[in-house]
């Protein structure tokens, strides 16, 4: 419940930070990356890069607390698993929108709006004409915009974005860049996993190829 409570507080003045240490990741028997340390402070942006299958999404899930860091070393003498510590609440955008496909967009977003206690907005995301359209009839780009609307109404302090440019047109990409800039102005940390270049000023870059297991 703690994370939910934090979202009610205004973002201005919230001290956000990320401290992640000794992250190792494997999928099944396959090691993906390892020995990863990450320290970010308020307002910073990080661009995660690397070829398909290197573990960008797995790293985001690990940072989101949805995937446990693997333990490094042989069985029996394995080191303690790595740790991820956030200050400030967390929003996560991915391909899956978490919106009910059978419901009209307004109702599907309305569920998250009630849960997060913030009203849903449609206009800024170019969704005002789609409020009555069931989510499963939306195009990839429209679905991505709906995901962004869900992310924005959550009011989380920090954002994790998995391939946020997928499906977005030029105008949508510009909107995303404005949203990211506004989030950083408010002191939030934004981590973007993308194989496309993204126009975010003075960001740090992390190439997962430099962190083999």
């Amino acid at each position: 419940m703690q994370a939910a409570a934090q979202q009610g507080t205004p973002l201005a003045g919230t001290q956000t930070s990320l401290a992640a240490h000794d992250l190792y990741c494997r999928r099944g028997d396959r090691p993906l990356f390892g020995g990863l340390n990450l320290d970010l402070s308020a307002g910073e942006a990080l661009h995660l890069t690397g070829p398909n299958g290197i573990g960008k999404t797995s790293l985001l899930q690990m940072l989101a607390g949805l995937r446990r860091p693997a333990r490094y070393g042989a069985h029996g003498e394995a080191a303690a698993p790595g740790k991820v510590v956030w200050q400030g609440s967390l929003g996560y955008l991915e391909d899956r929108t978490a919106l009910d496909g059978d419901l009209p967009l307004a109702e599907a977003l309305g569920f998250w709006a009630r849960l997060d206690g913030h009203p849903a907005e449609f206009e800024p995301f170019g969704l005002s004409d789609l409020m009555d359209v069931p989510v499963r009839y939306l195009s990839t780009g429209q679905r991505r915009r709906a995901g962004l609307a869900r992310l924005a109404l959550q009011g989380a302090a920090n954002w994790l974005l998995d391939e946020p440019l997928n499906g977005l047109d030029a105008e949508g990409a510009a909107m995303l860049e404005r949203l990211i800039a506004a989030k950083r102005m408010g002191g939030g940390i934004v981590i973007i996993a993308s194989h496309q270049p993204i126009a975010v000023p003075d960001h740090r870059t992390l190439d997962l190829r430099e962190h083999p297991w």
């Binding site: 994370a3 989101a64 996560y92 899956r96 978490a98 496909g101 997060d116 869900r150 989380a156």
Partner: peptide, 14 residues
């Protein structure tokens, strides 16, 4: 699970 609803709820500390 397919739509990631449980993941989004977990992020909110539920």
């Amino acid at each position: 699970i397919e739509q990631g609803v449980f993941d989004q709820l977990a992020l909110r500390g539920i």
